[in-house]
Design a protein around this nucleic acid. Sequence first.
RNA 1: GUGAGCGUAGCUCAGUUGGUCAGAGCACCGGACUGUGGCUCCGGUGGUCGGGGGUUCAAAUCCCCUCGCUCACCCCA
Length: 424
Amino acid sequence: MIQRPRGTRDLLPPEVRLWQAVEGVARDVFSAFGADEIRTPVFEATELFVRSVGETTDIVHKEMYTFPDRKGRSLTLRPEGTAGVARAWIENGLSDRTHPLRLYYLGPMFRYERAQHGRYRQFSQIGLEVIGADTPLADAEVLAAMHEFFLRLGFDDLVIHLNNLGDPEDRVRYQEALRTALAPRRSELCSDCQRRLDENPLRILDCKVPSCQAVAAKAPAMDDVAGEASRQHVLQVEEQLARLGIPFVRNPRLVRGLDYYLRTVFEVISPKLGENTVLCGGGRYDRLIADLGGPAIPGVGFAIGEDRLIKVLPAAFREAVLAKSRLYLVPLGAAAQGQVLELARSWVREGVPVEVEVSGRSLKAALKRADREGFRAVAMLGEDELRAGSVSVRELTAGSQISVPVAALPGWWHKLIAGPVGKH
RNA sequence: GUGAGCGUAGCUCAGUUGGUCAGAGCACCGGACUGUGGCUCCGGUGGUCGGGGGUUCAAAUCCCCUCGCUCACCCCA
């Protein structure tokens, strides 16, 4: 028995519909905000991620799916989406387009980790990037599009966390400030944080260990060290959010795991996700494109974890999507079987979703299945119906049955699903 | 990479002083009801008890190894 690789999963019906629906909402919302989709390769030169995501990050350090191809080139399955978008932007000369360029993407990402609740080796992200604008307004627009997306899905328990990561120069100073502040209390930190103190002191801020949190709480905040420019920038983003009525909390301990972020960073937290509460993460990355060898063009964006999103999808959205809305067409007898596909095709052409009973079930068994599967209605075609040029149509929930001329069925169906019980 | 828990039918699970222990419910197929569902009853299909090795007269049950799943840590979506 061959099994799927660890950390991957099969998305089966009917749950796949949720994915399709969520992706549909993303396309609608992001394109309404002026974005177009971009599709970049699922694998890239390893160097791209090393230089963008950051050599010292865990993603590059131990989580990448890296392999040599037949010519010995080192390739890596993309662990996130922004790097590929930035690379494509440079490579295709998109700097010639009118700025800013708004791009969205969706698809699988890969990180070599042990799977757990809301975390997989292959997972999907939906991202939005605005490249070519360095204003707080651009940050706020990205956040507004994100907020609109979550709103459209019916979320009401998500919290946006926001922080200022400062400019890169600020960060260097801040790391030093943290080191000098925390070094005397080294013994109070957990073993991981003692290591972080040397490698990446920012990470101590979001450690889960209570004793570390106590120590971190007394450490200097980024805003104490950050330059005026980044502070003003994030302040203006906050003003825009307030004006839009988008709730958020300023979280001075929010740090992100990718090196390219600066100034505005944010996360969306769901209370229902176990220990992996981050549903969406993003921020500004004004140096990324230049660092990859492109022009000095700023950018801001986010990525939503689709797997996690689906896990906590509001019930109302979920149920609306999963409600069946097909017509079940059951032929009775050889003569009916001979005509049933032709009939189905004619209805399909008029916009009726038809599922034909092709496995020879008895009428009784077919009705039983229709009930279990939640079909809205069953159309029965037998000897009597063939003679009359009609079909017997049974509405499952109501239990009512009428005879409808074959040509009139599409009209009958469309009226039915437009009714009060009908879901889209 | 580390730790803990768990792997018995498609699904959810019973099943220890090791000795009819290979079962139940749901699902699926059929019948009672020759072309009419949701209830009930009856019957049927379906399992290398994750895999391998060991102990024993005898192992789903005890021991070792291994694979897989889940959750947590690290980290992140």
